[in-house]
Every structure is written in structure tokens, then in C-alpha cells.
Design a protein around this nucleic acid. Structure first.
Lengths: 151, 151
DNA sequence: CTATATTAGTACAATATCGAACTAAAAGGA
DNA sequence: TCCTTTTAGTTCGATATTGTACTAATATAG
């Protein structure tokens, strides 16, 4: 592989890294004190996908080590945004349920993001984002799978 | 703005977040012990753009707080990968120069990434990445600018 | 010129991240 | 069944990240 091709891949990850960095900052500026992006992401995932999931499944979904997820969930539980229950099917395991306060916080945070997205939409047409998404999803699915064999 | 549109923007940042997470893991698996992605990113930036830059410029380039950059640079300097010199134009300031060891580490890390990129290229054609890049760059430039006024 | 404001960088403290080692439960093999 | 291996989750320690507050130097206003 030539240097230019390798450079293209590096650029890809570089652009993604910076967008991620800034997006995270925007989100965290709209979250209550002490809550950070991973907290919100978990709440959002519990609504979008399904709550009652095990911590290990959440860790896999976000591709973080399981002890990092333990920590994030502890923060959410301490604030009453999720409830941890024993998993009736497996005594080693737990289930994570979102609470009404958790749902409420998610809704309010999304509402807080809307003005930003509207500004966004004025410059980057929604169409372009819609087009971009399947491409990104393809890459995400690929690296996701790649990760399972090689790291 | 309707809920679906907001969901599209969330999906965008969500996909980007996961790709970033996995990409970082891949990179860090190929870095020597104790070095992490930000260390490599700085070395790479010093070559790609220009070395002799001030820490504050690097912090702006990566959109991280300046004290985070201080910490990253301290790690690089401790390992002899960069050299910090006083800035002759401004006594408050410094310049960051990459050392031969730093250059060497960067080259070796890129070489270590190549097999992964080759695997990548077999599934996601290079063309698609090349097409994707300007779109991402556009978004990056926009959020970058947005960040300067509103946060 | 002097006083004030801004800027570059660091120090400190709080929290986050994550590898490694551990416990307890479940799964699998003989 | 009994023993071994795997799995879910936590604990611990090391390092990373970042907000706040600081120092020193530079820029700016009057």
C-alpha cells in the first residue's frame, strides 16, 4: 500500500476524531452538571433499542471495556436515572432499566440540542447528512466486525 | 424541527462516535506501551502540518483544552519524542519540535497500521472513502466554526 | 508611559478510562 | 456428578481529561 492511500485512511479517522470531539463538547454543554456524553449515550440507547439490557451488552454496543460501563452505570444509578435489577435468568448478571427521571432527562437534553441542529441544517442540508449516514454505517459495521477477530 | 430530523443528527454523531472509538482502539494496539492515540495524533500533526508550533495552536487544532495538551506534550517529551523549546518571539510561549525518535516512531506506527488498512480496502473500496472525505471535512469545518461562536 | 486586559502555559483537584486481577455463577466435558 | 473453563461484574491502581485558579508575559487603552 502506498503512502498516499494510508494517508487517506488516516485522514478519515482524523476528521471523524475531530467531529466527535466537538460533537461531544456540544452535547456536554447541554447536560446537567456532572453528566457527560457516555451517560447520555446510555440513556439514549436504552430508549432507542431496549431497556432491561445487561451491562455487558451495553459495553459491547458502545465498544468500551466492561469496567468502564460499570463506572458509567454507577453514575447513572447514583443520580436515579437508571435502576439496576438482578437478572432473573442469570444470577451473575444484572439488568439496566431507565427510570422516569432518566426518560425525562433524555427528552430535555434532545430539546436543548434542537436549536443547534437547526443552525446545522441551515448550512449542511439535511439531505447531505441523510446521504452520508449509510456510508458511515457501512464503515462502522465493517470496523465493528473487524474488531471481533483482529484488534 | 421534528423528532425524526433530530434523530438523524443524533445518528450521525452516534456512528461517528463508534467509528472513532474502534479506530482509536486499533491505533492504540499498535503503539508502544504507555502511548495512546493523542500522543500519536500530535506526532502525526507535527509532520503533516509543521513542527515548531506552539502548544496552544496544537490544542486548537485538536479542539482540546490547553491543559490537556500540556499533559500530552509532557508525555511525549518525557519519552524523547518531541522537544520543547522557548518561543523566541514570545517569552510566555513554547515551540514543539519532533525529534528523530518521534519521526521514527510515527513511521513505524504507520507501517503497523498498513495491514489493517489493506484489509479495510478489500471491503470498503478506497473510492468510497475518498468520496466520503470531503463530506466529512465539510461537516468538520462547519462544527469547528460553530464552536467558535456558540458552544 | 502606565494601568488594565488578554494570552500562554502550569498546578491542582475531581472525575473518567482502562488493564489486570479477582469473585461468583454458569456452561461444558469426562 | 465433579472438575475445568468461561462469563458477568467489581475492585484496584495507574494514567488521562478537564474545569478552575494561578503566574508571567504581552497587548491595548487612555
Amino acid at each position: 500500500m502506498d503512502e498516499k492511500t494510508a494517508g487517506t485512511f488516516f485522514s478519515l479517522f482524523n476528521e471523524i476524531g475531530i467531529i466527535n470531539q466537538i460533537g461531544t463538547t456540544f452535547l456536554e454543554a447541554r447536560l446537567p452538571d456532572g453528566l457527560i456524553a457516555p451517560h447520555f449515550s446510555v440513556l439514549n440507547h436504552l430508549i432507542r433499542v431496549q431497556d432491561g439490557q445487561t451491562p455487558i451488552r451495553l459495553a459491547q454496543a458502545f465498544q468500551v471495556p466492561k469496567n468502564s460501563m460499570t463506572h458509567t452505570l454507577a453514575g447513572l444509578e447514583r443520580r436515579g436515572l437508571v435502576q439496576m435489577r438482578p437478572n432473573p435468568d442469570d444470577a451473575r448478571s444484572k439488568q439496566v432499566w431507565i427510570t422516569p427521571a432518566g426518560r425525562d432527562l433524555r427528552v430535555r437534553t434532545i430539546a436543548n440540542m434542537i436549536p443547534l441542529f437547526e443552525e446545522f441544517e441551515q448550512t449542511i442540508a439535511l439531505d447531505r447528512v441523510t446521504e452520508l449516514l449509510p456510508r458511515l454505517r457501512e464503515i462502522r459495521e465493517f470496523v465493528d466486525e473487524l474488531r471481533d477477530h483482529r484488534t
